[in-house]
Amino acid sequence: MNGKLLRRYLVPVAYLTLLIVMVSVAVFLLLELIPGDPVDGLVPAGATDEMRELARHAYGLDDPLLERYFAWIGGVLQGDFGRSFTTQTPVLTSILERAPVSLELAVLAMVVALAVSIPVGVWSAYRPGGLLDRIATAFTSATLATPSFVLGILLVFVFGVQFGLLPILGWVPFAEDPVQHIEYLVLPVLTLAAGECVLLTRILKGDMMATLQQDHVLSARARGLPTWRILVFHALRQSSFSLITVSGVVIGRLIGGTIIVESIFSLPGVGTLVINAILSRDFIVVQAVVLLSALIYLLINTIVDLAYPWLDPRVRQVKTS
């Protein structure tokens, strides 16, 4: 591995390390910047000043700021995010118990978004102004103008209340009843996927329209190759690099952004855990979730950045030349 290629991998890793340090500092200071006193969540209403001081000392809240940061980050590096102020259970345990729900929701939403966006984007680029393109344009315009929580409420009203086709609220584990598990996932997944379909479809359509005008595609058409072969093997692969890059951003955003959807559909995921922690002023739980969400987002984007030269040989040639 030559020096330029090695630098290609070391620079993103160095940036990732720096960003992780900056994020950890910002997340820790979150507790200091939030209005109110964290002790309010540790003592009962009407507690005396002595009780408040004892609670502050027990949780190390009276230590110097820098000392508390290093104590907190040292525990995080060992997998110890502290204990919940309200339940006294390890924060990491609470997150791991709820993480499968949020991860399943985010991954399925991403799969649905790609399954819809790829064929629609490809055909819209091949037949711009056609029926499918006009329908897709109308759908994307309507979706852009509709916040996710409004879309979720509309889906609940139409499919749950009006027609009674799908359950509205709640959660059934897959091991308990696979069919009901899927039924309870349909509306939340559609709510999340709809917004991402807009972004992914537009990106792929724009890249595909440019690729279809390139010489190698025009040459394939002149040779009489089938349309599906030209679109899939000659145009889609070259047009998918922006899609892959953005997909990394989207999946990271979905993992950390299911809070509203989980709240609407009463799903026992990490988003619901955060909302409950905010309401009870259990800020140590909020700190852990924000930190882990940011780390996942940064890691996914770094992996996509490192993998990009292997996905697009042209980038590898430029970087190593």
Rank of each mutant, 00 (worst) to 15 (best):
A26L: 15
V27Q: 09
V27Y: 10
F28S: 09
L30P: 05
L31D: 10
E32G: 04
L33W: 14
L33K: 03
L33I: 15
I34Q: 13
I34W: 11
P35N: 09
D37R: 05
V39Y: 05
D40T: 12
L42A: 06
P44S: 07
G46N: 12
G46I: 09
A47L: 07
A47H: 02
T48Q: 02
E50L: 11
E50I: 08
E50S: 11
M51V: 12
E53V: 13
L54R: 14
A55D: 01
R56S: 13
R56Y: 01
H57M: 13
A58K: 15
Y59C: 00
L61K: 05
D62E: 06
D63G: 01
L66N: 00
L66S: 08
E67V: 15
W72C: 05
W72Q: 05
W72M: 13
L77H: 04
D80P: 12
F81G: 08
G82R: 05
G82T: 10
G82I: 11
F85M: 08
F85T: 05
F85W: 12
T86W: 05
T86N: 08
T87P: 00
Q88V: 08
Q88C: 02
Q88L: 13
L92I: 15
T93L: 10
L96S: 07
R98E: 06
V101S: 02
E104R: 14
E104W: 10
L105R: 03
L108N: 12
L108F: 15
L108G: 00
A109S: 15
V111N: 02
V111E: 03
V111R: 03
V112G: 01
A113E: 03
A113M: 01
I118N: 10
V120N: 06
G121L: 03
G121E: 07
W123I: 11
W123M: 07
W123F: 12
A125D: 08
A125F: 13
Y126M: 00
R127S: 10
P128E: 06
L132K: 01
T137D: 09
T137S: 14
A138N: 00
F139E: 00
F139K: 00
